[in-house]
């Protein structure tokens, strides 16, 4: 287990939700964790939505200064340097979507590379329209990697159709994840699945509560 875990990938692939669930998992193991939302692209679906719960569970939560406000102003918080400079805590970093989102990592990358104790994971949902094939997913993966300035170390297969996901949908995605692994030379590090559908060895996800159907 590396000290820093970064989640990057195509926008809407499920990075934020996975980062939150991953943080909960570390907290449950009694580890000190800081989670940071560095998504400067999309002003919605923020880690801030879960800030209270995560803080209560013992996490330190770093969010963008204007997240969930009505101000769509992309700026990075100065506290984010704690992620790379305070080596006494585990760090979970939720990065913005696509190559544009990954650009925000740039200023932290020299520290991350110097410490060299990180996992840089590419989240993929093969049911998203621009990453339905391993070849398309590879294209996004390479774009993100180039913008971030740091190589990926693994893949997270988060293939799902939201509330309509079936076990069969998950099964169908496994061969695509394997193919992406072959094309990229990266291992599939996690298969993330909604908790009620998750099988052995898969990472169960708890989703946010819906207010209406």
């Amino acid at each position: 287990m590396k000290r820093i875990t970064l989640f990057c990938g195509h926008y809407g692939s499920g990075k934020t939700n996975i980062a939150i669930n991953f943080t909960r998992d570390l907290l449950a193991k009694g580890l000190p964790v800081t989670i940071a939302d560095l998504d400067v692209v999309n002003p919605y679906f923020r880690t801030k939505d879960s800030e209270e719960e995560l803080t209560r569970a013992g996490a330190r939560v770093i969010t963008l200064p204007f997240a969930n406000s009505n101000v769509d102003l992309p700026s990075l918080p100065s506290q984010a340097y704690a992620l790379v400079q305070d080596r006494s805590r585990y760090a979970v970093i939720d990065v913005g979507g696509d190559d544009r989102g990954a650009l925000a990592l740039g200023r932290y990358v020299p520290y991350i590379l110097e410490e060299n104790d990180y996992d840089m994971l590419c989240v993929v949902n093969f049911y998203r329209p621009l990453t339905t094939t391993p070849a398309e997913a590879l294209e996004v993966l390479r774009e993100v990697e180039a913008a971030a300035g740091i190589p990926f170390t693994g893949i997270v297969n988060n293939s799902n159709l939201g509330a309509e996901t079936t076990r069969e949908d998950v099964e169908k995605s496994l061969s695509k994840a394997k193919e992406l692994s072959r094309l990229s030379g990266l291992p599939v590090r996690m298969t993330t699945v909604r908790a009620d559908l998750a099988g052995d060895g898969e990472f169960p996800l708890t989703l946010q509560k819906k207010i209406f159907e």
Binding site: G12, N125, Y127, R128, P129, T132, N160, L161, G162, E164
Partner: peptide, 14 residues
Amino acid sequence: EKVLMKGNEAIAEA
């Protein structure tokens, strides 16, 4: 085959 889309993307693809 179904895909998981944002409303904005669905308009564009349609």
